[in-house]
Design a protein around this nucleic acid. Structure first.
Ligand code: ZN
Ligand code: ZN
Length: 372
DNA sequence: ATCTTCGGACGGTCAATCAA
DNA sequence: TGATTGACCGTCCGAAGATC
């Protein structure tokens, strides 16, 4: 179902057939605590060193670390006693290796759009100027959004009424009320229903699923990495992916923990390993492919069909290589506009552009109004 | 080694819903 | 009616294939 059709796919592909030996579970930060993440599993986040409240020496609001099951994150409550400390997390946070959120232009010129290359606000845009395509550097026509699309009942995610007895204002104390799971956890469940979580993965007393930890003072979002959070489209909603990772200096956290397959099954106190939770992409736990739930996955290697016309790609991209030998950074000036193969290619001056997905920019469609 | 292609992640927008 | 949700649609990163 789902929503964004091709968006969240993992391209299906690439399952690692047999992962190498799983790393051993690291020691727990304190008895009964969740296991810390495997080293290097994720981008690290850590708080600003500057305390806006002016007290650099103030005790932290508590360490937070993600905890399984896959797709659900919990934070650590403060340890039972200060004496127990957080030794296991006292390693210095490594340098953050994140990148700025990608910024898109409102409308790319047809050439850039077709070539899937970065454009800019200027007209002609830099890329077109560079390749001598200034003449054809014009905005595309945005396709009208479909209307009349029916949706099911909404799952309210925020502003849950909660007693203020919680240590986190606005969030119910553990054990009371219910916490809203991400849509993929509640998919198919009636509104307000408690998400089905394997008992062994229910948060221990005092723990809360990640999304409900507000960012404490002094903690700042990491220099966001494009896909690190899905916000932007959620208008100030708590991000579904961590934007803040309230970690005491020296207590790294990660967007999600553990990565599926990072460790073997979680050992139980009895030394047994519980049955693995349904981590496979099943309809139940993965279907909610609303944009906000886009899983951040390592991009699998792509395979290409040699020469074969794609056709199965979501928008019917086709290789224009044969007909349009130089498209991307063509010696445009010397390229003679070849008659485009299709009947309608208004702006496609046989340009250096390629990668046009039919129906997209460059091929303005008539106002598509859903029949409704 | 460089160029070209293009899969799909990511971003932005806005219609559909829903609560006040 | 304003706020929120969720999905449509566009942008463009970045890796693989093709070519020089
Ligand atoms: Zn452009
Ligand atoms: Zn242009």
């Amino acid at each position: 179902m789902s929503g964004d059709q091709a968006k969240s796919t993992t391209s299906g592909a690439e399952q690692v057939p047999h992962p190498p030996a799983l790393p051993q579970y690291p020691p727990q930060p304190f008895p009964g605590a969740p296991y810390p993440p495997p080293p290097g599993a994720y981008t690290w986040y850590y708080p600003s060193t500057a305390d806006p409240n002016g007290d650099p020496g103030a005790p932290p609001p508590g360490p937070f670390v993600m905890f399984p099951p896959p797709g659900i994150m919990y934070g650590y409550p403060p340890p039972p006693t200060p004496a127990q400390g957080y030794g296991a997390f006292s390693t210095p946070a490594p340098a953050v290796v994140t990148r700025a959120k990608r910024k898109q232009v409102k409308m790319a010129c047809t050439n850039c759009a077709t070539a899937c290359k970065r454009c800019d606000e200027a007209r002609p845009c830099q890329r077109c100027q560079k390749y001598g395509l200034a003449d054809s550097c014009v905005d595309g026509v945005r396709k009208a959004r479909k209307v009349g699309i029916k949706r099911g009942p909404y799952k309210r995610k925020s502003k849950l009424s909660a007693p203020e007895t919680s240590p986190y204002p606005g969030f119910p104390p553990n054990g009371e009320g219910s916490w809203a799971a991400t849509s993929d956890q509640t998919e198919g469940a009636p509104p307000g229903a408690t998400p089905a979580i394997p008992p062994q993965y229910l948060p221990p007393e005092g723990y809360w699923p990640y999304p409900y930890y507000p960012a404490p003072p002094g903690y700042v979002p990491p220099p966001s990495e494009g896909h690190a959070n899905g916000d932007g489209a959620t208008h100030g909603q708590p991000p579904h992916h961590p934007a803040y990772y309230p970690i005491h200096p020296g207590y790294p956290a990660m967007p999600m923990y553990p990565p599926p397959g990072a460790y073997g099954p979680i050992p139980t106190s009895s030394g047994q390993v519980p049955p693995a939770p349904p981590t496979e992409p099943t309809a139940g736990n993965q279907t909610a492919t609303s944009d906000d739930e886009r899983p951040t996955v390592e991009r699998p290697k792509k395979k290409r069909r040699a020469g074969g016309e794609d056709s199965t790609s979501k928008s019917g991209k086709k290789s224009k290589r044969a007909a349009n030998p130089s498209s991307e950074a063509p010696a445009a000036a010397t390229v003679t506009p070849v008659a485009p193969p299709s009947e309608d290619s208004p702006d496609d001056h046989g340009s250096p552009v390629a990668h046009n997905r039919s129906g997209s920019v460059g091929e303005p469609l008539p106002p598509v109004i859903a029949a409704a």
